[in-house]
Nucleic acid binder design. Structure first.
Length: 430
RNA sequence: GGAUGGGUGGCAGAGCGGUCGAUUGCAGCGGUCUUGAAAACCGCCGAUGCGCAGGCAUCCGUGGGUUCGAAUCCCACCCCAUCCGCCA
């Protein structure tokens, strides 16, 4: 959510920021509602002050035994009260209108975010790891013999429908090993605090991180009104909702491995083969809560944490700065880390690391008290995948595939796989 | 699902019709003392909105109601805790 004062002070700059994201101007409407709201507040407060004065005088008159004055003031007070109530209701309505509008406006991009309308405007920041030179035509993950035995789309479809997968045997185990490898790396080397969170949350949590009110159709909702989280960014970030933290406690760095659920409304036909895009998947997420001064450095640090996962797994990657037109709703700047998928012959998103500034903090009222004392300020929030587990499995399979149909596994996973270094063409660990 | 208790300032926790935006303790900030620190002592210290400002208004879970007057009484709802039942 936006700071109304910022829009008041520089409405043109605000609209320019929205325009950079391809969003129509909103400042004029915001300011019109704000003006109506402030006028209503002032009128209501004036009436309220009159009511209070009359009530006080009436009390005094009663104490003094002046019945006539009391009755007169009482009538005066009652009239003021009715009028105050009417104006207060008006002020509240305008305030709600303003909030409702502000909640639907996306975050402003940082100045150094490249302009663009879609992913073609993204700018490469860096890359590492050379794609392997395959002496054969590399296959997509679902066509690799070693993987086929463990990828059961038919059974998953029977159980749950399309965009679900059931992993069996070696693949299920490698998938688990990947998630645990990531978590352990973040906890032991990157200093993040491990969290195991609920995956069902209330409206307030989804609103805090920006999924609601605008993107309700992207998530699943239970019959009793809870939401299945599309990412544990929701639970991790909302751990500080409503809080006033000590500055000394920042930055707070959290990580969690959870299931994520997405309806994938509007993505019909995209990535229908294989397990790249699923309704349900697992992700190791990272979230940082920082002071405003820390957030830019933290963004870089978090990006490095995600890149490190790929480096340890020996997977080639590149990091893109998303252009204004490709960024998510709540982000001020986003780094997408893309992993090389030889079966597709291109880089695909495996992590998205965003700094949100105070955008989410305002929505969830998350603040900190500056070290020297003083008024609470909004924290900055960041989130990033570290990494999407299913997509990492795809990358491991495609990059490790051999001519004989087997898959060579990353060395760092061996301790978690009973020492196994490969998946044989028949799908067994070896 | 049934029953009970409860939601008050960063935290803990009083207050139960006016003198309460709120006692007190802790934390925080400033100071005295000290070589320095600790301790002790003194002072300050909630949030939000509106206003150029003096200041005004609002906030004791939320929304209604009673009353001249509500943190305090009544109603509804939300949330939390505990016990019972069921259950991984």
């Amino acid at each position: 959510m936006h700071d109304i004062r910022l829009i008041r002070e520089a409405p043109d700059a605000f609209d320019r920021a929205l325009a950079r994201r391809g969003h129509p101007p909103a400042a004029a409407e915001v300011l019109a509602i704000d003006a109506a709201r402030r006028a209503a507040i002032q009128a209501a407060e004036a009436q309220k002050a009159a009511q209070n004065a009359a009530a006080k005088a009436a009390g005094a008159a009663k104490a003094a035994g002046d019945a006539a004055t009391f009755e007169r003031l009482r009538a005066e007070m009652a009239a003021a009260k009715d009028e105050a109530a009417r104006l207060e209701a008006l002020a509240a309505a305008e305030d709600r209108r303003l909030t409702d509008l502000l909640l639907t406006l996306p975050n402003r991009p940082l100045d150094d975010v490249p302009d663009g309308t879609d992913e073609s405007g993204n700018v490469e920041l860096r890359r590492r790891g050379a794609p392997r030179d395959f002496p054969f035509q590399p296959r997509e993950h679902f066509d690799i013999p070693a993987a086929r035995a463990g990828l059961d789309f038919e059974t998953a479809a029977a159980l749950s429908g399309s965009r679900f997968v059931l992993l069996r045997g070696a693949l299920a185990r490698v998938h688990r090993a990947l998630a645990q490898f990531m978590l352990d790396l973040h906890v032991t080397e990157h200093g993040l605090t491990e969290v195991n969170s609920p995956v069902l949350v209330r409206d307030a949590a989804m609103t805090g991180t920006g999924q609601l009110p605008k993107f309700a159709e992207d998530s699943y909702r239970t019959e009793d009104g809870l939401w299945l989280i599309p990412t544990s960014e929701v639970t991790l970030t909302n751990t500080v909702a409503g809080a006033i933290l000590d500055e000394g406690a920042l930055p707070i760095r959290l990580t969690a491995h959870t299931l994520c659920f997405r309806s994938e409304a509007g993505s019909a036909g995209r990535d229908v083969k294989g397990m790249l895009r699923q309704h349900q998947f697992e992700k190791v997420e990272m979230v940082s809560i920082t002071t405003p001064g820390q957030s830019r450095d933290e963004h870089e640090r978090m990006t490095r944490c995600a890149e490190t996962v790929l480096e340890r797994l020996g997977l080639p990657w590149r990091t893109m700065v998303l252009c204004t037109g490709d960024m998510g709703f709540g982000a001020a700047r986003t780094h997408d880390i893309e992993v090389w998928l030889p079966g597709q012959g291109r880089y695909r998103e495996i992590s998205s690391v965003s700094v949100c500034g105070d955008f989410q903090a305002r929505r969830m009222n998350a603040r900190f008290r500056p070290g020297g004392g003083g008024r609470p300020e909004f924290v900055h929030t960041l989130n990033g995948s570290g990494l999407a587990v299913g997509r990492t499995l795809i990358a491991v399979l495609e990059n490790g595939q051999e001519a004989d149909g087997s898959v060579t596994l990353p060395e760092v996973l061996a301790p978690r796989l009973g020492g196994a270094r490969r998946i044989a063409p028949d799908g067994t660990l070896a």
